[in-house]
Design a protein around this nucleic acid. Sequence first.
DNA 1: AAGCGGTTCAACCGCTTGGCA
DNA 2: TTGCCAAGCGGTTGAACCGCT
Length: 265
Amino acid sequence: MVRAPCCEKMGLKKGPWTPEEDHVLVTYIQQYGHGNWRALPKLAGLLRCGKSCRLRWTNYLRPDIKRGNFSREEEDAIINLHEVLGNRWSAIAARLPGRTDNEIKNVWHTHLKKRLKQNRTTTSETRARFFSTKTEQEPEPSEKSESLDCGPASPPQCTSSDTSSATTSDNNSNIKSNNDKTCMEFDGYAANLPEADESFWSEVLSAENFDQMVDQVQAIGGVPGVGVGPADDGFCLDMYDHNSMDFWLNILPGADEIPELLLGI
DNA sequence: AAGCGGTTCAACCGCTTGGCA
DNA sequence: TTGCCAAGCGGTTGAACCGCT
């Protein structure tokens, strides 16, 4: 199917926005709102298509947008959310107030992918040691694994987040899922897990739960980490002290020491 | 100072989704 | 149920910028 580009009509401007155009757009939206994006440029007197106006507004001109570099906390949050949500940039952006999906996508491709790649290189020996006893036929990690592609089936009992803070479950009880398939990663190794429905992830990712659990773990001087493991009727996901042996025993049954390079991340 | 290659990020393209008649 | 339209979304592009030689 071939669809004509939205700006194909002659006379519609493309490319970078000028300060004058920005001013016209902002003034119009402040005055009348943006009921219909397609009609907006005509009404506002802009030689742009509605789509271009919407993008300019949502990605740049909106008053609630936070400009400037991402903090380390924000970067960590993106990494953690990306592990769970994959390339759903708008869903990730919804959890980072003031940041747009476009911005997050750019940061991911320009900074965070590199950072993760470096981490994986430095932890590869540790990882190999820990997985050697449990997952002898583990496939080689691929570049593509970052996009949460579901590769060949991996043992569902061993997986986790590879950074300190991550998602968590309901207060003191594990959250059980249904039996569909999804993917999570451990330091680049994709593992198939039972997939949870939307309400499950909403609950897991709810700010209240997350903050509460992080606080609890930090209150005892621990570093928050997420463990995922088998449960009687599916799998469970819970938050632990990342530096505790219990955490590693849960996700790597049989482990005899905490992965040195992951301590205190 | 100039050229070049790598990086960044705003903007675009086109597919998907949802609402409505 | 079907078709159309508007908006949302993710992938990609390319101009601007930056650092190195």
